[in-house]
Write a protein that binds this DNA or RNA. Structure first.
Lengths: 341, 341
DNA sequence: TTTTAGCACTCTAAAGTAGAGATTGCTAAA
DNA sequence: TTTAGCAATCTCTACTTTAGAGTGCTAAAA
């Protein structure tokens, strides 16, 4: 879609229309654009331009005698070519930083604070997910007997993060046996990423003097120990903000987004998929893979903890103040990266 | 409030009124009770009785020309003296058991499944919180170096449960030092409940050859290590079910409950406070300490993992099918206890 | 060729009106 | 003590009306 060939007038009309609609949530008429935005043209002329924009599929009319509202494509053009990023004030920056810092270095608390601050200052839904260990480089593993038939498996990666999994081992292995196994694991696996380990664990433990039963146990549990499945956490704060938006006045619409938020799995997968890309990602309306949020836009950015990364962002109706949000999400991600390093 | 002196007719009218209202959510008129419930009395007589019940504060009229709806006190009488518990069918039992079992022995998954099944079969909000370690008897502690300046503290209690806390220790202590510390901790603390440890840790580590810095670190962190603060998890599933209820048609009402669900802290405290009482607890409307759920009722039961216990239950509008819910919550708690033992 | 004024037309949203229906409380009779 | 009957009250729904906003088209102006 080559929309670069919009005339400068068309661009200005589209821009003003979107700006106004974002503020008011009401369909925008030609008179408003002509007068309030002082374009030096009559409403009739604006009307003609609006007709052109509608033919291009960038704006549409809810009904005959209403003004126009932007379509997803309209927002897309706006975001790609018309939008001027609105910088944060110093006090805003300070505020964000202070909240993000409130959890010390405890990553789960920091992430919860982050989703909270994002939700609060955007008045939308703030999102944060825990970092992907998948690309983390293993520094050390520990196997700690916790109770009968259970051990804690501790996995530490290079950036100073670690996590633990409680694992069932039906039969009791002797402490010595476990210690030896631990040694071999560390010897053979440290320095590799968790992803590499998961994919190759079977071969790497093939020619050893280890108990085959123990090896099998760990090979079978490889997706639990060395991947992010079931471990990735998502924080979503500000559901109330969404409820207040007129876009969610309809019960059905509200219901579907609430269900998606509760389910989490699908949402985690979607948000997580953005953690590898650099910079801000904006996904508008129909561009979202999840049906239930096809009337929403999502603005995300990745953050880093050493070598591994996660994603934060916001979700809200497509009618959102993109120019401000980009700055907010960007700066929050930066603050988060700073805090966690 | 001695309401036992209700006449048998008053009791029957109240009972029928509540039954009908629970099903329809519409104010119930005297005609309905007279005809549908075949009380052998005219509507005029019922009307007189209803006036009496209203004077006692058990039912009320939304407006002059409407039927009556139960008040919180009305529900209370109903629950205390009129309600007949409705037993579960075999297939219902089977279904609950199968879902609760789906997580194997992994307690977090089992609890998440439990809140899900509760939400699903009641069409309300299912709740489950993790068990209180507070009363658990320590079997063993492990200190495992995880990264520079960080150790994993693993606390295992008698019932076979364990949990881990990632702890910051600014300065580096030698592995030997830590191992010695670990030995002393186990020697002096195992056999005590976590609550006892938290309250007396300071004295118990007083006369030792341990590094005072290390001791101070652990004494300072005692509420993190030996209590449930920040560790108790809550699962709440079925927000969508609440949204569908007519009681939450009003945006404000909906908003306040959503906020409470998101905040979690207050809710955890409230639900957790019920984990010590045996049997089903029903809290109706205004009896709830949290303002935001004063139009809701809460039905809970504790479950056990060995010696330590947690709580599950449901939240919904005061107009809920108590007689069925009691059986559901009761049986689910029993299944959960079975699964986790 | 482009822009604008003017106007008929369309549609929504809000306000007002009317009528049906439900339920009550009271009274007087059974 | 119970019931039939009835006026009174209030809600809810449907319908009508009105005001207002905005469009699209046409013809004139620039």
């Amino acid at each position: 879609m080559a929309f670069e060939n919009l005339t400068s007038r068309e661009k200005r009309v589209l821009q003003n229309l979107i700006c106004h609609y974002i503020q008011t949530a009401d369909p925008v008429g030609s008179r408003v654009i002509a007068n309030k935005y002082r374009m030096g043209l009559s409403s009739a002329t604006i009307r003609n331009t609006m007709q052109d924009l509608e033919e291009m599929g960038l704006i549409s009319q809810p009904h005959t005698s209403a003004g126009r509202i932007p379509t997803d494509s309209g927002y897309r053009i706006f975001v790609n070519t018309l939008l001027k990023q609105e910088p944060l004030t110093d006090s805003e920056k300070k505020y964000i930083k202070s909240i993000v810092n409130q959890g010390g270095k405890r990553i789960d608390i920091v992430l919860s604070q982050t989703s909270k601050i994002l939700g609060d200052i955007t008045s939308l839904l703030g999102i944060s997910i825990s970092p992907r260990f998948e690309e983390g480089v293993l520094t050390r593993m520990n196997l700690v007997p916790a109770a009968e038939g259970k051990i804690f498996v501790i996995v530490a990666v290079k950036s100073g993060l670690a996590r633990s999994i409680l694992m069932e081992i039906e039969s009791d292995f002797s402490p010595n046996e476990l210690r030896h196994f631990e040694d071999v694991l560390n010897e053979r696996l440290s320095g590799l990423t968790l992803g590499q380990i998961r994919r190759t664990i079977s071969e790497r433990l093939a020619d050893t003097d280890l108990s085959p039963r123990l090896v099998k146990l760990f090979v079978d549990a490889r997706t639990n120990i060395w991947s992010d499945k079931d471990t990735t956490q998502i924080h979503a704060t500000g559901t109330g903000n969404l409820i207040k938006q007129p876009e969610f006045a309809d019960r059905e619409t509200l219901l579907s987004i609430i269900n998606i938020l509760e389910d989490k799995k699908e949402l985690i997968e979607f948000i997580d998929s953005k953690s590898l890309v650099e910079g801000i990602i904006i996904t508008i309306g129909n561009e979202n893979p999840i049906d239930e949020i096809k009337n929403c836009s999502v603005v995300t950015s990745k953050y880093q903890v050493g070598k591994i990364s996660g994603t934060i962002g916001i979700i809200g109706p497509t009618r959102m103040p993109y120019s401000k949000l980009i700055s907010i999400v960007e700066y929050t991600a930066k603050s988060l990266t700073d805090t966690l390093s």
